[in-house]
């Protein structure tokens, strides 16, 4: 068993030629481990689909190499790669029943008839489609089509399953259901999943590791906790959840924020930008940093408090709402801010 399911080295993709050439992917290097649930996360147009299509073999990289299961597959056509795709639009064959759709890959691999039949039944049971197996895609709901697409891609037991925003067409409730379902399928089959989404919450809840992309580049790769708590730059911090950005002056183990020195070991020297998650900002009577409360917004479980520091920097704190629903603070009131230990992060390149 090789430790790397996929090894991408310096992959770049340019669409078109000459004046109309567009660089969709600029030198991405990435290793995806066997058996992990890996998520590519980034805003629309950042090159997620392009990267996935390079792995599937629908596009050839302009530069760089792609190894799958330890073999160089850079120039291997898609029908010879041990990789299957769940398409965003499902791309189910409209003239075939759910069962025939699921059988397709195994048939193309030339598996014996009875083996195909038994594998297909297993897949139908795995995605709980027993009732619907003889219907055509046009007679299935979005969620059911989704399951057929999953079963069809899983049936040939690929080394890697690629999923391009497979849940984006589903409504919220079904989406939550399918997130759990996908996670279950991945655990049960042990297949490496490469999942694409632009939804940070989806990425955080489902993934073993996340790769955050922007503008055709991979900005950070790490476990969800790492990405959330140690974002490498302003973009990642902002894209993954809400963040306060605080301009500060670093001096040794201290950072000076709005004229107040806060302790931050190893801060270095010079102007920096600090990041702090709203839920790690505390409001109390004895915090070190004075601020003025400008606005509170009630969200049910949480209440967001918008505050301004003496230098005009805005900071948002997310507090758990008390049973009464009233946190007991009034707009315009002076408050004192404190940060949870380790909440302040210095952003690089900001």
């Amino acid at each position: 068993m090789s430790p790397s399911a996929i090894e991408i080295v310096d992959a770049a993709k340019v669409y078109g030629y000459g004046a109309s050439a567009a660089r969709a992917l600029g030198g991405v290097s990435l290793g995806i481990r066997t058996g992990e649930f890996f998520t590519l996360l980034g805003p629309s147009g950042c090159g997620k689909t392009t990267l996935l299509r390079l792995i599937a073999g629908f596009e050839m990289p302009t530069e760089g190499t792609i190894h799958i299961g330890g073999k160089d597959m850079t120039a291997v056509p898609p029908n010879k790669r041990p990789v299957n795709t769940v398409f965003q639009s499902y791309a189910l064959f409209p003239h075939l029943t759910a069962r025939e759709n699921i059988a397709f890959g195994l048939q193309m691999l030339g598996r014996p008839r009875d083996e195909v039949a038994s594998e297909v039944e297993k897949m139908i049971a795995l995605v709980k489609l027993e009732e619907m197996a003889d219907r055509r895609p046009g007679q299935l709901s979005g969620g059911q089509q989704q399951r057929v697409a999953l079963a069809r891609a899983l049936a040939p037991a690929p080394q890697v399953l690629l999923l391009d925003e497979p849940l984006s067409a589903l409504d919220l409730k079904l989406r939550k259901e399918m997130q759990l379902e996908l996670k279950r399928l991945q655990t049960e089959t042990g297949i490496t999943f490469v999942f694409v989404t632009h939804d940070q919450e989806e990425a955080l809840t489902m993934s073993d590791r996340i790769g955050v992309m922007s503008g055709g580049r991979l900005l950070q790769v790490g476990a969800p906790r790492e990405i959330y708590n140690r974002p490498v730059d302003r973009f990642v911090a902002d894209f993954i959840g809400e963040t306060n950005f605080i301009p500060a002056e670093a001096r040794g183990d201290l950072v000076r924020v709005a004229g107040v020195d806060l302790s931050l070991p190893g801060a270095g020297n010079g102007p920096v930008t600090l990041a702090a998650r709203p839920e790690q900002v505390r409001i109390g009577s004895n915090g070190p940093l004075p601020a003025t409360l400008t606005r509170t917004v009630y969200f049910g479980t949480d209440t967001h408090c918008h505050m301004t520091l003496s230098d005009g920097t805005e900071i948002v704190a997310r507090l758990q709402s008390p049973p009464s629903g009233d946190i007991g603070l009034r707009d315009g009131q002076g408050v004192r801010i404190d940060f949870a230990p380790g909440a302040l992060q210095i952003l690089e390149g900001a």
Partner: peptide
Amino acid sequence: KLVEAGYDLYA
């Protein structure tokens, strides 16, 4: 897209 799906499934 169905052509790609076909290639993807080893056709």
